[in-house]
């Protein structure tokens, strides 16, 4: 199943997708599993001078300098003051999509999940401006106290989202 999935959009139309779910603010988001290298805990981020506000800074990840991007800032999601930075997570992106090591800072990482393509609504995404890089909305069915609930997960294309920056 995983072998059928590729990071290229066109081939995700049928079959299933594997994503990493995470939280930004109140909403759930997902990015392609193969864009993810690993998830690490927050460590102190050294700010870089004279850089865009969504570039949080850099960390030393096992000897490698890794640039940290605040995804909330990038996506213009309101920052909630009650969550301290220390509780956030960093999703380190796979090197195959970036020239240098990049991590994105998210509020929490939930799980690695597999969804069938019929669970993905791509029509909603089409309405939105290209710039948002939303691939689609995943409808995830969960059971809470014998009640069927549908969670909506915003599936984004991280490569496009970070676009220019990753070409640096």
């Amino acid at each position: 199943m995983a072998s059928e999935v590729h990071s290229d959009d066109s081939q995700v139309m049928s079959g299933s997708i594997q994503v990493v779910e995470f939280i930004l603010g109140d909403e759930k988001f997902a990015i392609d599993l193969f864009d993810v290298r690993e998830v690490v805990e927050y460590t102190r981020i050294s700010a870089l001078p004279n850089s865009p506000s969504y570039i949080k800074g850099i960390i030393d990840l096992r000897g490698e300098i890794t640039t940290i991007i605040d995804l909330k800032d990038r996506l213009n999601i309101m920052r909630k003051n009650d969550r301290p930075d220390e509780e956030s997570r960093i999703i380190v992106l796979d090197e195959n999509i970036t020239k240098k090591k990049v991590g994105i800072m998210v509020d929490d990482v939930l799980s690695v999940s597999t969804f069938e393509m019929n669970q993905v609504d791509r029509t909603g995404a089409a309405d939105v401006d290209d710039d948002s890089s939303i691939l689609g909305i995943i409808k995830k069915k969960t059971k809470v106290k014998d009640k069927d609930l549908t969670d909506l997960i915003i599936w984004i294309e991280i490569k496009q989202l970070l676009g220019d920056m990753l070409k640096m």
Binding site: V20, L33, E38, V112
Partner: peptide, 9 residues
């Protein structure tokens, strides 16, 4: 989580 990512990959 990381194990899952690795496993999925």
């Amino acid at each position: 989580l990381n194990a899952a990512i690795e496993a999925a990959r």
